[in-house]
Design a protein around this nucleic acid. Sequence first.
DNA 1: ACCTACAGACTGTTTACATCA
DNA 2: TCTGATGTAAACAGTCTGTAG
Length: 294
Amino acid sequence: MMVQKEDLGLSLSLNFRHNIPNPQHLTLISSSTHSSSPSPSPSNPFKPSWNDAFDRNSDTCRGETRSFLRGIDVNRLPSGVDMEEEAGVSSPNSTVSSVSGKRSEREPNGEEHDMNRACSRGISDEEDGETSRKKLRLSKDQSAILEESFKEHNTLNPKQKLALAKQLGLLPRQVEVWFQNRRARTKLKQTEVDCEVLKRCCENLTEENRRLQKEVQELRALKLSPQFYMQMTPPTTLTMCPSCERVAVPSSAVDAAARHHPMGQAHAHSRPMGMGPWGSAASIPHRGFDGFHH
DNA sequence: ACCTACAGACTGTTTACATCA
DNA sequence: TCTGATGTAAACAGTCTGTAG
């Protein structure tokens, strides 16, 4: 089965990560007949130990193990894998290099699978010692086509993937990876934008809060001098009709709204000025000027 | 030569679905 | 027919690392 080869590579990596110099164990795992769970499914008997040993601990641990892996070609093929068509499959107009990819072997399409096996992991044992993974650089045309395709649909079904790969002269695996990365980076950018918006929102709310605190202080001060209290002008918090943008009469914002809009219903939601957290000012609960009528 | 941002590629995890006992 | 176990594939998150500027 195709997945068994993937399992080989993975198991090899895991053993290195565990840093357990146990050739016997390595041999045991590397033997495809002993691994009934090729994918990293929860049922994989080797996964829990890996998780227990590393993943649940810390990123540093992970980083260390990854660092430990540097210089080890995790894409290395198990011996005996057919290396035909190793060269010259990458895009003719790209900056070509040998491309690795294990996951491509999961491709259900046999043709694609064969192509990937032959091409995407084309690192010979001789090369392995000195060559780390090299990256292809997509040409402008390729990037443009991929971008266009991404605009249409940011995920690809296997058929589309194959067609696109064929059109671009790339491996389906490369198209798949490109889309994955594109989705991830799009999401990241969107997150950054959202973060900026939230930041601005926070600043606005802070400013609004400051303003309201100040207003409260002023009102408290006024309360101490009742002779001025009744003569005061309305506070800065005005009730405004959101649809027609008229400021309601302080004595009864709802009544005013009802007068302005005979049906009345449109102004049941009459709110104080403010654009809400997403605008220049925060929304605050409706209270009209009731507080001034004692 | 060194640094940095970008992007291609990888590993491990999660999730959905199919199959089978 | 229902249900839990298992396998598979796809997408995702996080990371590494080669390369261009």
